[in-house]
Design a binder for these strands. Structure first.
Lengths: 363, 363
DNA sequence: CCCTTTCTCGAAAGCGCTTACACTCAGTAA
DNA sequence: TTACTGAGTGTAAGCGCTTTCGAGAAAGGG
C-alpha cells in the first residue's frame, strides 16, 4: 500500500508524450481518455497502462478550451448578504451544491460581488469563459442580475423565486429552486393563532429581499384567514440579533396600553437570530417566553435547540436546495433545450418551547 | 443611464475579430489588453475604443492555457469537517479568502473532498491545471495532504500549523496562517483560575485536529503555571452542542463527591456550541452558570451574545485569517522563490456573563 | 550620408487538448 | 475478381490567447 511510483520528474506530461510512449497518435490517446469508440481493445489497454504508469492527468484547461466547456459552476454571492454568510445557510448551500457538482464532474467557483463593481463587471469577469453557468442566491425584489443573465444568454438557476411583478413569461422561463417561504410563515403564524395569541407580529427581513415578500404573504394569509388584519403588524430589519431585539422593543412600545402588559404577544421572526433578539427584549420587559408570549424563528440553526427556551422555528432543507440547484444548472448546461424547471421544497415547523398555549403558565 | 449598447449578436468576440476591426494584428491587441509597451499611444487608444465599444472580454481559458496560469485558488474542504461547515467559521473564511483573491484578480475554486476518494484522487482532479495553488483548512495531526502537496510541488498554504512531530525542516518550509490557539486556551483557563475556580476542565475538540492539540497545550500550561495538574481534566468530542452536553455530564459524574455539588467547576470549551451544551447540562444539574460555575467558549458565534447567560468566549479573527491565507498563497504563486511565511493571529478573550468570580452570587 | 539604436508592429509558433477527415486494411457481397 | 463496407488509426486544423522574432521606420551619432 502507499507504494506509489516515485516519479522524480514532476513535470506534467502531455498527451503527445503519452502518445509517443504508447507508440500511437494523440488522437488515439484522446479517444482512450474519453472512452470513445474506434480504438481496438489491445490498443486501448496498452494506452491505459501507460497512462496509469505515469499517473497522467489531462490538462483541464486545454480540454476546456477545445471543448468550450469549463465544467465550472459559478456561485454568485452578493456582498450585501452578510447574513447569509454568517450563517449555516451559506455553508449548507455550498455543501449541497458542491456535492452534486462534484458527483457530476463539475467544480464550484465562488464569485463574491464586491460593492464597487456593477453586476456587469462582476459577472462579466467571472464569465470570460470561466464558468459554464451560474447559480444566483439571495434574490432581490427587482433583481438587476436577472436581466443581465438573460441578456448574456448564460445558463443559470435562481435560488429563490422571482416575484410576479415581472412579466409572467419571465418567471416561467427560468430555472429556480426555493423553499416554501409562504407556507413556512403561514404555518408559523397559524401555530401562534392556534395557541391563542391575540397580538401577532412579523419581524421580517429587509423588504428588498424576495424572501421577505414571500414570508409576509404567508403571514398575512394566515391572519386574514382567521379574520384578523395584518395592518401595521409587520416590522422589518436585518436578519441579526440586534434587529430582532430593537424591533421587538418598538413593537412593545406600540402595543403598550393596548394589551395587558404585553401578555398574549406572538412573534414570527424571519431568522433565528432575530428570534433570539426578540426573546431577549421580551424577557427584559418582564415577559416569560413560552408562557406569556411566544416566538418562532426561521432556519433552525444549531443553537436554536440549545437556546433558552429552545426555539420553535421553521426549518428549510438548505442542503437539498443546493443539490437541486446544481442539478438544474447542470441539466440546463448539458441539455440547453430542456424546459426550465421550478422546484419548491417544503418547509417544516419545528415546535419547541418558545411557543406555548397562552393559558399555560410556566410549568 | 443604463442605456447600454444593445449588442444583439451575443456571440463572443475573439481577439482576432477585435484586431480586424481595429485594423491591427492580434499581437497588438494582446499588448493593449495587457498594458504592455511597444504600442504607440494612438494605436492603443484606437484599440481600446474598439474593445470598449464591443464590450470585449478576452477568453480566460485561452489566456490561462497560454500563460500556464489559471488565476484560480483552490480551497480544500475535508468532508469530515461538518463542524466547519455548519459554522460562521467557514463562511467567514471564504469571505476573507475571496475578498483578497478577487482584489488580486484571482478566483476561488471550492474542492470538497468526498469520503470515497483518496486525497490523491481528490486533489489530482482539482489539480489538472485547474488551480494555481491550494489552501488547506482543518489541519489534522498527521495530515496526509501535506506529503502529497509537497510531492506535487504545488504552491499551498495551510490554515493551522503543522505539529512539531514532523521534521522541523518541514514545519519551517511551509506557508501557514493560524490563530493563537495556545494563547486563547491559555487565557481562557487563566481567566477561570483568576475567578477562583477549583475544578477546571477542558472540553476539547476531536484529538485528530491539530487545533485540539494546540488548545490542550494552552490549557495545560495555564494549569501547570498555577501549580495544578491537568491530568484527567481533558475530555474530547465533536464541536457540537450534544458533545458539550454529554461530556459535561461525564465530567459531573466524575466530579461528584469530590467537590461540593459541582460548585466551583470551570469549563473551557473548544467551541461555542460545546459551551452551550455544557451550560445546558450544568443547569440541569442545578448549577447556576455565571455564579456557581463558569463556562467559556470558543469562536464568538453571533448567538453567543444572545445566549443565557451571554457567553464568555475566545474570538478568532477568521476573516483576517482568510485574507492572509489568500495573500500568502498569491505571493507564493507569483514569487515562487519567496521564503515561506508563518502568520499567527492573536485571539481575544471576550468576557461576558457565563464566567464570574465564584463567591459572587447571582445578582 | 551611413550606421546604430529605438520604437512599432505583424507573422507565426506555441499552450495541450479534441475531432473532422483521409487513409488502410480486413471482411463481405456481387 | 471487383466494389463496398466499416473498424482502427493518424494527420492536421482548430480552440483563443501570448510572445518571440524579425522587419521596417524613425531617430540619433559620427
Amino acid at each position: 500500500m502507499g507504494a506509489r511510483r516515485a516519479d522524480r520528474a514532476r513535470k506534467r506530461l502531455t498527451i503527445a508524450e503519452i502518445a509517443a510512449l504508447a507508440g500511437v497518435s494523440t488522437a488515439t490517446v484522446s479517444r482512450v481518455l474519453n472512452g470513445k469508440r474506434d480504438v481496438s481493445p489491445e490498443t486501448r489497454l496498452k494506452v491505459q497502462r501507460i497512462i496509469a504508469a505515469h499517473n497522467y492527468q489531462p490538462n483541464a484547461l486545454a480540454r476546456s478550451l477545445s471543448l468550450r466547456r469549463t465544467h465550472n459552476l459559478g456561485l454568485i454571492i452578493p456582498h450585501t448578504a452578510e447574513y447569509l454568510v454568517s450563517f449555516p445557510y451559506f455553508s449548507e448551500l455550498i455543501r449541497g451544491i458542491s456535492q452534486r457538482a462534484n458527483a457530476a464532474g463539475y467544480r464550484l467557483l465562488l464569485a463574491t460581488s464586491s460593492s464597487e463593481r456593477s453586476s456587469e463587471e462582476t459577472y462579466g469577469e467571472v464569465l470570460r469563459g470561466a464558468v459554464d453557468g451560474l447559480i444566483v442566491v439571495d434574490l432581490k425584489v427587482q433583481d438587476e442580475r436577472l436581466r443581465w443573465l438573460r441578456r448574456e444568454a448564460v445558463p443559470f438557476v435562481l435560488i429563490g423565486r422571482p416575484l410576479e411583478p415581472e412579466p409572467s413569461s419571465e418567471v416561467a422561463g427560468v430555472n429556480c429552486v426555493d423553499s416554501d417561504n409562504v407556507g413556512g410563515a403561514y404555518r408559523a403564524t397559524r401555530h401562534l393563532l392556534e395557541l391563542g395569541h391575540e397580538s401577532i407580529w412579523l419581524i421580517n427581513g429587509p423588504p428588498e429581499h424576495a424572501v421577505s415578500v414571500y414570508r409576509e404573504r404567508g403571514f398575512r394569509r394566515a391572519l386574514e384567514e382567521a379574520g384578523r388584519s395584518a395592518e401595521g403588524r409587520v416590522l422589518a430589519g436585518p436578519f441579526t440579533v440586534e434587529a430582532g431585539y430593537e424591533l421587538t422593543q418598538t413593537l412593545l412600545a406600540r402595543t403598550r396600553g393596548r394589551s395587558r402588559g404585553g401578555i398574549g404577544i406572538g412573534i414570527v421572526a424571519a431568522s433565528d437570530l432575530q428570534a433570539c433578539g426578540a426573546v431577549l427584549a421580551l424577557r427584559e420587559a418582564g415577559l416569560r417566553v413560552g408562557a406569556d408570549v411566544s416566538v418562532v424563528g426561521f432556519d433552525d440553526v444549531p443553537l436554536a435547540r440549545a437556546f433558552d427556551p429552545p426555539l420553535t422555528t421553521v426549518r428549510q432543507p438548505i442542503f437539498e436546495i443546493g443539490k437541486e440547484a446544481a442539478r438544474l444548472l447542470i441539466r440546463q448546461i448539458e441539455q440547453p433545450d430542456a424546459p426550465p424547471l421550478q422546484t419548491v421544497f417544503p418547509t417544516e415547523l419545528i415546535v419547541r418551547r418558545s411557543t406555548r398555549p397562552l393559558a399555560h403558565s410556566d410549568e
